[in-house]
Computed example of a mutant assay.
Amino acid sequence: MIQLSEFLPPRPEESWKLIRQVGVDNVVGVLNGAEQDQRMFASVGAGGWTADDRDEVPWSEAAIAHNLATYADHGFTLVALEDTAPIDKARLGLDGRDEQIDNVIAQVRAMGRLGIPTLAYNWMGLSSWGRTDIAIADRGGALVTGYDRATAQAGEPLVEPGRVTREQMWAGLEYFLAAIVPVAEEVGVRLAMHPDDPPQPVDRNLPRIMSSVESFRRLLSLQPSESNGITFCQGNFALMPEVIDGATSIPDLIREFGTEGIPFVHFRDVKGNVDRFQETFHDAGQTDMPACMDAYYEIGFEGAMRPDHVPTLAGEGNARPGYETLGRLFAIGYIRGLEHAAYGHPMTRS
């Protein structure tokens, strides 16, 4: 069976009780005050997450153990982290990258000692996931996030043209993996690269190298190992050129990469293409979601799987676009239903 999970900061909230009540007891966490925790929602200009003021280095064993205990006190098991120490110097191949990589190594070793099996990360330098609209009216007036490339590219450049090359970023990734993967193998942690979001070749002059299926095949070939894997974010893969042009499909990619390549899944969907798209309810996008779940069953996937970028429903304020509570509950129920249909009811499983 899958480890149905939710994405929660290490700071208790009212929604945690509801998430437990609908049957989720696994957490994908961020680090208190680390890279993704700091960047969360910055790209869409919304508020929502504020780190606790702690006298701890966010990626240290003490801080991660603190987070693990916080989740456990509320009935959750921490099965993955989706955050690292800052690594932009590593992504861009700049001076100072070795210190940043050493911080990630310390985090990976701590995760191994604490029994946290998966570390999701990304190669999006100087920014996080990008959206240009956080309140598109969808079914019944629910609000979803969306992206328009023309609008986004008119914004402030991330770097001057030509300052960073694709080759530079690939070299930085190869250097990073050579340092991190052997440590991850040693301590039993699986790395899981998230796609660029959106999966476009350039964002405001900065190359994006994890934006095609072929780039993920290349990623896996750089350091062949079960500790070098993919965060299989379906919504991003659905926008990649090989899927849009019909050369492959999401279920086919699940079978291709298999459990050796996929330790962690974002089960989500979109409508549109990489230049213009919007998030959707899980039952209303352009991907055959039941066929995806069937494919996960066929490959024997039993890792962490979570919903992502859900609609904001009636009565919610949209302070956290994509991460309000009611849409999460709908998504959890939808995913659980597909899981039971594909994997069988828990009482029937051997």
Results as ranks from 00 to 15, higher is better:
Gln168Ser: 14
Trp170Phe: 15
Gly172Lys: 09
Gly172Phe: 12
Glu174Gln: 15
Glu174Cys: 06
Phe176Met: 05
Ala178Leu: 07
Ala179Phe: 05
Ile180Gln: 03
Val181Tyr: 06
Val181Gly: 10
Arg190Tyr: 02
Arg190Pro: 04
Leu191Thr: 14
Leu191Ala: 03
Ala192Thr: 08
Met193Phe: 10
His194Ser: 08
His194Leu: 07
His194Ala: 09
Pro199Met: 02
Val202Asn: 13
Arg204Cys: 02
Asn205Thr: 06
Asn205Pro: 04
Leu206Ser: 01
Pro207Lys: 13
Ile209Gln: 05
Ile209Leu: 03
Ile209Lys: 05
Ile209Asn: 06
Ser211Glu: 02
Ser211Thr: 00
Ser211Tyr: 00
Ser212Pro: 00
Ser212Cys: 04
Glu214Asn: 11
Ser215Asp: 04
Phe216Ile: 10
Phe216Pro: 01
Arg217Trp: 07
Arg218Pro: 02
Leu219Phe: 14
Leu219Arg: 05
Ser221Asn: 14
Gln223Ser: 12
Gln223Cys: 15
Gln223Leu: 04
Gly229Leu: 11
Ile230Gln: 06
Phe232Gly: 09
Phe232Cys: 12
Cys233Ala: 15
Cys233Trp: 05
Cys233Met: 09
Gln234Arg: 06
Asn236Met: 13
Asn236Thr: 11
Phe237Lys: 04
Phe237Met: 06
Ala238Glu: 06
Pro241Thr: 15
Ile244Gly: 00
Asp245Gly: 00
Asp245Ile: 00
Gly246Pro: 01
Ala247Cys: 04
Ala247Ile: 00
Thr248Gln: 04
Ile250His: 01
Ile250Pro: 01
Ile250Val: 11
Ile250Ala: 01
Pro251Arg: 05
Asp252Met: 06
Leu253His: 02
Arg255Val: 11
Arg255Gly: 07
Arg255Ser: 06
Glu256Ala: 09
Thr259Ser: 14
Thr259Trp: 10
Thr259Arg: 15
Glu260Tyr: 11
Gly261Cys: 09
Ile262Lys: 08
Ile262Asn: 10
Pro263Trp: 02
Phe264Cys: 03
Phe264Gln: 12
Arg268Gln: 13
Val270Met: 07
Lys271Ile: 13
Lys271Thr: 12
Gly272Ala: 07
Asn273Val: 07
Asp275Ala: 11
Arg276Trp: 03
Phe277Leu: 08
Gln278Lys: 07
Glu279Ser: 04
Gln286Phe: 02
Thr287Ser: 08
Asp288Gln: 01
Pro290Thr: 02
Ala291Glu: 13
Ala291Phe: 07
